[in-house]
Computed example of a mutant assay.
Amino acid sequence: MLEKVLLSTDVALVCVQHALSTEKEEIMGLLIGEVHNNGALVSIVSSVILRRLDKKPDRVEISEEQLVQATLRAEELAAEVDRPLRVVGWYHSHPHITVWPSHVDLATQSMYQRMDSSFVGIIFAVFLTEQSTKAPSVQITCFQSINGSNQTRREIDMEIRNSSNALLSNNFQILTQLPAILKEEEDEAYSNEVGQNYLEEDIINKQHNAAVRTIAIGHIVEKMSRPMLEGLVARNAVNNVRLKALKKHHQDLMSRLENCM
């Protein structure tokens, strides 16, 4: 029985950024990792961001094709790092509502668990306000479903740990793919609207749809791409400071070693 989940810091960052991309509909993705101790421990080291099939405020769906693609990606990563990686879970967001899974979430989780008893679900509740401080907050829960006449949740202990260096580049690429995936969703929504055989003289509808698409893409740039770039620049600056300190420490150690010889 699954007892604990270890979540990579970079994967947590990707999931939170994805969850904060929209406060009107839920988002969803799959989690890649390893199963240890006969299913008692799951370590999550990467993720797959999914394009939404349907934008709904209270649920998300995944196609079988997306699940197959995620499985293939897990196999590719496993070959790259020589580790037995596979799809071990899924995540989705709860914008403006409680972090606890709904009956739909529990049913979805139960379906996955029938295929893999170690499969886990993680929910990121975003756009919440801390009552005491009135500050924005993000809540996270990790759960499985308990089958029975009335499905209930079983909370799983989760710990966020530093990322593996072997997958650092992969997780960085996933993070930077997020704005492009969101743009693809908007392009698809726009194409579906204009593809409904509007008449030549239906200029108002055409202009309205084009304006909605432009606003949506502007939102992606303003709320996702720019803050992400600023965050990555700041992270790079911190890493450079750490690198400089490590080099100085290395020089000091080498000097001490030479003096001892």
Results as ranks from 00 to 15, higher is better:
residue 42 V to G: 05
residue 42 V to D: 02
residue 43 S to W: 00
residue 43 S to T: 13
residue 43 S to D: 06
residue 44 I to W: 07
residue 45 V to W: 01
residue 45 V to I: 07
residue 45 V to E: 02
residue 47 S to N: 14
residue 47 S to W: 10
residue 47 S to G: 13
residue 50 L to N: 11
residue 50 L to T: 15
residue 50 L to S: 14
residue 52 R to L: 15
residue 54 D to H: 14
residue 56 K to D: 15
residue 57 P to Q: 00
residue 58 D to M: 09
residue 58 D to A: 11
residue 58 D to Q: 08
residue 58 D to I: 12
residue 58 D to Y: 12
residue 62 I to Q: 04
residue 62 I to K: 01
residue 62 I to D: 02
residue 65 E to V: 14
residue 71 T to H: 08
residue 71 T to Y: 04
residue 72 L to R: 04
residue 72 L to C: 05
residue 73 R to C: 02
residue 74 A to G: 08
residue 76 E to V: 11
residue 77 L to D: 04
residue 79 A to I: 04
residue 84 P to W: 09
residue 84 P to M: 05
residue 84 P to Q: 06
residue 86 R to I: 04
residue 86 R to L: 06
residue 86 R to Q: 11
residue 87 V to Q: 02
residue 87 V to Y: 09
residue 88 V to F: 04
residue 88 V to T: 09
residue 88 V to E: 09
residue 89 G to R: 05
residue 90 W to R: 14
residue 91 Y to L: 12
residue 92 H to N: 08
residue 93 S to F: 08
residue 93 S to P: 08
residue 93 S to Q: 03
residue 95 P to W: 08
residue 96 H to Y: 05
residue 96 H to E: 02
residue 97 I to W: 03
residue 100 W to V: 13
residue 100 W to R: 12
residue 102 S to C: 03
residue 103 H to I: 12
residue 103 H to Y: 07
residue 104 V to P: 03
residue 104 V to N: 07
residue 104 V to R: 04
